[in-house]
């Protein structure tokens, strides 16, 4: 059984935003309203003279225990055996309970208006027909074909690594096992599957 996960090494993320652009183009997201399946914070941390500029990529954590799924009344939010959490455009009625439940700000709305704009923007290739909640799919359509997710594929810092936690030889699995890579808000019991390698130790 596969269990997909991503490790993000903050030490080589340069905040180039290639992942945002790649994701938008690959997944036809509503760029016109500046909303993203993945986005990269550009933050100043540290105190006094000891300043650090941190780039912090964010996306759906494909939680093992996803609150977004359990609150979904229509079954639009579902989970594949490989752990990828998806939204079914046809079933979703857009109540947004999932967005309320998600602790990681990983979901966005696609409205009728967006569907119209999308037809104009992505032209003949636009895939969506109805509005729904939208989120990162781990690019399962690429993963199925043995490719990496678009954001990982293009990551110029190789900060994003994608792999299978259930494969002991997978570098991603090893990084997670070693404990250098840690998830966000684990105390919420969501069992997230995006892991981060911290950058602070690098200072001075």
């Amino acid at each position: 059984m596969t269990r997909y996960a991503m490790v993000i090494d903050l030490n080589t993320c340069v905040g180039c935003n290639a992942c945002m652009a790649a994701c938008a183009m690959e997944n036809q997201t509503p760029v016109w309203k500046n909303e993203w399946r993945t986005y990269v914070h550009d933050q100043e941390i540290g105190t006094g003279e000891d300043v650090l500029r941190r780039f912090f990529p964010r996306l759906c954590n494909h939680c093992d225990n996803p609150p977004c799924l359990s609150v979904c009344p229509t079954g639009a939010t579902y989970k594949l055996d490989n752990g990828i959490v998806k939204v079914d455009e046809d079933l979703c009625m857009g109540c947004r309970a999932c967005a309320m439940a998600c602790p990681y700000d990983a979901r966005m709305e696609v409205t009728w208006d967006d569907v119209e704009k999308g037809k104009a923007f992505y032209g003949s290739d636009y895939r969506r027909e109805r509005p729904s909640m939208d989120k990162c799919t781990f690019c399962d359509h690429r993963v199925e074909k043995g490719q990496k997710p678009a954001c990982v594929e293009t990551c110029v810092g190789s900060a994003r690594m994608f792999g299978d936690l259930h494969d002991p030889n997978d570098p991603v699995a090893q990084l997670v096992a070693s404990g250098v890579a840690r998830p966000l808000l684990p105390h919420l019991g969501t069992k997230p599957n995006i892991y981060y390698i911290g950058d602070v130790k690098r200072r001075g």
């Binding site: 009344p73 857009g94 309970a97």
Partner: peptide, 22 residues
């Protein structure tokens, strides 16, 4: 709602069997 048509999916009583957690 974003998609009013899909509300049918919750009006259907079987929703309780399928999504008892929601």
């Amino acid at each position: 709602l974003l998609d009013h048509r899909a509300v049918l999916n919750v009006l259907n009583p079987l929703v309780l069997i399928r999504h008892p957690h929601a």
